[in-house]
Simulated assay, not measured.
Amino acid sequence: MSDTITDHESAVVAARAFAPAVAAGASARDAGRRLPFDEVAALSATGLLAVTVPTDFGGPGLGARTLAEVVAIVAAADPSLAQIPQSHFVFLDSARRVGSDVLQRHLFTRVLDGARIANAQTERGGKTVVDDATTLRRRDGRLSLSGTKFYATGAVFADILAVRALGPDGGSVVAYVPADAPGVTIDGDWDGFGQRTTSSGTVVFDDVDVDGDLVLDYTRLLATPSTYGTRAQLVHAAIDVGIARGALDAVPGLAQRARPWFEADVERAADDPLLVAQAGDLELAVRSAEALLRAAAERIEAADGSSGADAIAEAALATAAAKVSAGRAARRTGSELFDFGGTRTASDKANLTRFWRDARTHTLHDPERWKLQHLGHWAIDRRRPPSHGTL
């Protein structure tokens, strides 16, 4: 853990210092589906992956505001790289909330030493994405884990896998398993057209030994209203905000190099009044998403400080608004940036499609239509949203 990250400002400075180097190679990695092993290691070395480790365990204990801004900065540089630690932060948060003392000390100490956590949650065979067949069983005096997970983002880069499973006594658990444990197979079979280098493929668990001290009661975690799911959604929104900002940052270079349309009667495409208005509208959309992201983070921190039902609901609503706004801004900016460079922007070599591809792929994760449902029910009859509407 870097000793230089002690507060919000130092974390943001570290993220901004880190971003340019990874941005320089992001397009080439995407085009070649080259997994960012060096970049993930460099991200760990900054100490940014430990920003949420509680102060009681030697971490800076920074909150939602810092997490959202750091993730957005990294996502503007490389959206795939920013998504890789999404579950890392989520499953640190789950341990912080309901983990045993042994589990907390194990995880937080490992993360402060540079360890990374990845998820193994979703399966392909259930009726919905929250239905699990993967099971933790007692066998011959030990705990054994078997099953198959998909969309296991970042698994190939991880030291620890957080595996959601059916518990040996009923209910749902999360088992924290070494990624290199016997019986664990990580397959790099992710072939999505966007977020290409997240390593979001298949993980198989074949009679894997599990330490009982490193198992979390997931049913208990979800039994009480909290900001747990909302914080997870906030990170997804931050990734989309970063994609939108990264795409918009490409516009000046495109407009400066493009030829003006003859009907505009200007010397530069950058002076075409229709393009200027379009750029202004995009800037408005991205700034609005950024503002809503900050507001959502503030609501989450306020709710964590109060634990009241109204505050928890307001945090969920604010995050739903941020999520929808961020997704729309990311998809729109990734699509419309081509207007500023003309036909040459369609070249495969330019690889400008990656912004839209990343936005379109990532925003499939949690349907925005359900965020609008929550906002709509609140607007009409003040119905509170669920507090754990996340993966």
Rank of each mutant, 00 (worst) to 15 (best):
D38T: 09
V40C: 05
A41S: 14
L43C: 08
A45H: 03
L49H: 11
L49W: 09
A50Y: 04
A50P: 05
A50H: 05
V51E: 06
T52S: 12
F57D: 09
F57M: 05
G58M: 03
G58W: 04
G59Q: 03
P60T: 03
A64P: 07
A64E: 12
T66N: 01
A68Q: 07
E69M: 07
V71Y: 00
A72V: 12
A72T: 12
I73T: 10
I73N: 06
V74A: 04
A76N: 13
D78P: 00
P79W: 02
S80E: 04
A82S: 08
A82M: 01
Q83E: 15
P85T: 07
Q86I: 14
H88W: 01
V90I: 14
L92P: 00
L92D: 01
D93F: 11
S94H: 08
S94P: 02
A95M: 05
A95G: 02
G99W: 04
V102G: 09
V102W: 01
Q104N: 10
H106T: 12
R110W: 07
V111C: 01
D113Y: 01
G114Y: 10
G114F: 06
A115G: 07
I117K: 00
A118G: 09
A120Q: 12
Q121D: 08
T122D: 08
E123R: 13
E123D: 10
E123W: 14
R124N: 10
G125D: 15
K127A: 13
K127M: 11
D131N: 11
D132F: 15
D132N: 12
T135W: 10
T135L: 11
T135R: 15
L136C: 06
R137T: 13
R137N: 12
R137M: 13
R139I: 00
R139S: 05
R139M: 03
G141F: 06
R142D: 10
S144D: 12
S144L: 15
L145T: 12
L145G: 14
G147P: 02
T148R: 15
T148A: 15
K149R: 08
Y151D: 11
T153F: 11
T153M: 10
G154L: 03
A155T: 05
V156S: 15
F157D: 03
